[in-house]
Design a protein around this nucleic acid. Structure first.
Length: 239
DNA sequence: GCATTAACCACAG
DNA sequence: CTGTGGTTAATGC
C-alpha cells in the first residue's frame, strides 16, 4: 500500500509511460511487459479540478480508472437529491466496480474533492487481461472486495449507529485511513460529511460543536486537530 | 406524560 | 457554504 506522506509523494513519479510510472494501481504491477504495454497504448491521462465528476453513475461502462493523484469521493446517487457516500478515494486505486460485470453501467459516481490525476483504461482490454492473468485478477478483486466491505459497513453504521458514533467514525476514518495524521485539512464540506454519515448537515454542525466543547477535537479554519482519539474510539464503539 | 433523537425550516454571516 | 435556534415527529422510558 502506498502512503501519502510528503517523502513518498516527492519521490514517486507519475510517468506518461506505464512501465515507469510509480503511481499506477497495485494490480498493474502484476502484469507482464507485453500486457502493460497494451494498457499503455490505449490509456489516456486526465486531470480533474475540484468538484468535477470523474465517473457518472448510470453511464456506459467504457473505462476503468486508475486514480493516481488527489482525493475524490465515491457516492451513490439515490432517488432523492441526496447522495450516499460510500467512501473516499486516494492514490493509487483502481476504480471500476460492479458495473463492469453486471449491466455495463457505472454503479456509482466519483467526484474530485481536490485536483486529481487519473488514467482511463479501456474496459474491454481490462476484462481480457483479467481472464488471462490470474495474479492481476486476484489483485483487482482484492481492492474490489475492500470497497464492497466498506459499503456494507456504511450500511450498518447508517442504519444502526446514532449520530455521535457516526461522526466519530467519520473523523477516525479521515485520520486513520485517509490523511494518516491527527491534524489535517478537511477536504469535505459539512454537506459531504452529512453524505458520509447519512445525517442532515445541521446535525453534523451541532455534533462538531459538541465535540469541540468536549475537547475531543479543535478546528482552525479548515484544519481539524483530533485531540482525544481514544475517546472518539469509545464513542464510535458505544454509540 | 416526559426525555431523547434527529430531521426540516428559516435566517444570519 | 456554515452555524444556530426553533419546531416537529417518532420512539423509548
Amino acid at each position: 500500500m502506498m502512503d501519502l506522506n510528503e517523502d513518498a509523494v516527492a519521490h514517486s513519479a507519475i510517468s506518461d509511460n506505464c512501465m515507469l510510472c510509480d503511481r499506477k494501481a497495485e494490480c498493474f504491477r502484476k502484469l507482464t511487459k507485453t500486457e502493460l504495454k497494451k494498457f499503455h497504448d490505449s490509456k489516456s491521462t486526465v486531470t480533474y479540478r475540484k468538484g468535477e465528476t470523474i465517473i457518472k453513475q448510470g453511464t456506459q461502462f467504457t473505462h476503468v480508472v486508475s486514480f493516481n493523484e488527489g482525493l475524490a469521493k465515491l457516492v451513490v446517487e439515490g432517488e432523492t437529491e441526496k447522495n450516499v457516500m460510500i467512501g473516499l478515494v486516494k492514490p493509487s486505486e483502481i476504480l471500476g466496480g460492479p458495473g463492469m460485470f453486471e449491466n455495463n453501467r457505472y454503479a456509482f459516481s466519483v467526484i474530485a474533492l481536490t485536483k486529481s490525476k487519473i488514467c482511463l483504461i479501456d474496459a474491454s482490454i481490462f476484462k481480457k487481461i483479467i481472464q488471462t492473468n490470474d495474479e492481476f485478477a486476484e489483485s483487482f478483486l482484492s481492492t474490489f472486495s475492500t470497497r464492497y466491505i466498506q459499503a456494507i459497513n456504511r450500511l450498518v453504521s447508517i442504519t444502526q449507529k446514532q449520530m455521535y458514533g457516526r461522526v466519530a467514525e467519520a473523523l477516525l476514518y479521515l485520520s486513520d485511513s485517509i490523511y494518516l495524521t491527527d491534524e489535517f485539512n478537511m477536504d469535505l464540506s459539512r454537506l459531504e460529511l452529512a453524505e458520509f454519515t447519512g445525517m442532515s448537515k445541521e446535525s453534523v454542525s451541532r455534533i462538531f460543536r459538541e465535540f469541540k466543547e468536549d475537547d475531543l477535537i479543535s478546528t482552525h479554519g479548515r484544519t481539524i486537530i483530533i485531540k482525544n482519539k481514544n475517546r472518539l474510539r469509545r464513542i464510535y464503539n458505544l454509540c
